[in-house]
Design a protein around this nucleic acid. Structure first.
Lengths: 227, 227
DNA sequence: CCGCATCCGGGGCGATACTG
DNA sequence: CAGTATCGCCCCGGATGCGG
């Protein structure tokens, strides 16, 4: 991207990650860990393939992304974030938090959705409301044939793709209904009215509460400037 | 801007503020408060005037910026941030913090600089290292004829344009030397070797230390999603 | 199939000139 | 002072091709 030509930390940051699609590519790499080109493309509906290749090259030059050749069993190229790239997590957290109000009305007519995107709000915004109780796991099916597991883990909430062995609850429905229910904007009755199917004990939902975001990453991100 | 078409809070946020120059316009409004068009243009060297007008219109539609006609004495149009726009402060804080390493090598050959940009790193990254002592004020002259005052205030650090009545120290030099000295990367000898002139008691510098950023704005920014 | 490269049309952006 | 008008360019989007 063309530089803003301003001696300002914000402008310098935008010189590097201000291009279109760049921060969304970082999002995918944060959500998925080391990823193949094709998987990135799949998690970024709407991106042109040449643009993805261009951005990955630029991010590699900026030492935000590293390319590694996976070991023989897979024998494919993997893209992963460097520590500098991981340092963008607090930026995406804050920007995503600011964008939450734009989600409450539900998706626009042509909006795409990927279940993996649920992992970010779950881990960034939810905490285990009853840490002393045994852990629970819920399975979420949001329509793209890739179920997600959201579970309490030592007081916090974690999420990963896949099926749960013995889920305490299973949620099936639109992203809008699922997000509304988990965020506490909808109660179960309201979510059901929006088409959500809920199997399991409703009390499981009480385990997932809003909490202060995990700020541990923030303190670590400011170290490079202190001598 | 063209929408990413993804039902994801981060993508929705970038739909609104992801355009080129937009976040830098927010920076200026955060630094200056309500501003006239010409002052914004001056704080954004390199922007095309039609782009500034376009962005201000879009930001007004998005209810991030409000336009108000100033009272008779000035009789000019003012642009100011709405609460929604103010909510972007944590985003800029994190992005700027991430961009700090790109500042340590000094400005690029054609980089522009404005003294007001010093206010952000001063207030976001510095704290008063000796809050029990009487307050101090330093005056900084970074070459654009608009001196800044940086002072301790009840344990924290504040900054505003103008001259100090009785400054405890006066710093004159390049932005690179001043930033390096205040951030602790350079000691006074090193900063002087880079051309910085320092008048006053060097011990005043010890009052300005790195500290945890003021996180009060963060807690307030996440309220709209909790019922 | 994976990881791109090439080509092309359209629009966002940059620079300058001009105006109420 | 606060913009609008104009014009060229390059970034972006979409499609297709292609070597490993």
């Amino acid at each position: 991207m063309r530089s803003y030509g301003q001696y300002c930390a914000l402008a310098k940051a935008l010189d590097v990650v201000g291009d279109r699609w760049t921060l969304l590519i970082i999002r995918e790499l944060l959500l998925r860990g080391p990823s193949r080109y094709t998987d990135l493309r799949n998690g970024l509906p709407g991106i042109a393939t040449n643009l993805l290749a261009d951005r990955l090259r630029e991010l590699e030059r900026a030492e935000i992304v590293a390319r590694e050749d996976a070991p023989p069993p897979v024998a494919s190229t993997l893209f992963r974030l460097t520590p500098r790239g991981e340092g963008l997590r607090p930026v995406l957290d804050e920007l995503g938090r600011w964008g939450v109000p734009y989600m409450t009305e539900g998706p626009a007519p042509r909006d795409e959705f990927r279940s993996r995107w649920l992992a970010w709000p779950a881990e960034a915004f939810l905490v285990d409301g009853e840490p002393a109780q045994p852990p629970v796991a819920i399975e979420v099916r949001a329509g793209d044939d890739e179920p997600m597991v959201i579970e309490t883990r030592a007081g916090s909430v974690e999420s990963h793709p896949g099926r749960a062995g013995h889920p305490d609850a299973v949620l099936t429905g639109t992203p809008h209904a699922i997000l509304g229910l988990l965020s506490g904007r909808f109660d179960l009755a309201r979510a059901r009215a929006l088409g959500l199917e809920y199997e399991g004990d409703p009390r499981v939902l009480r385990r997932f509460r809003h909490g202060a975001p995990a700020d541990t990453a923030k303190a670590a991100a400011g170290t490079s400037a202190s001598r």
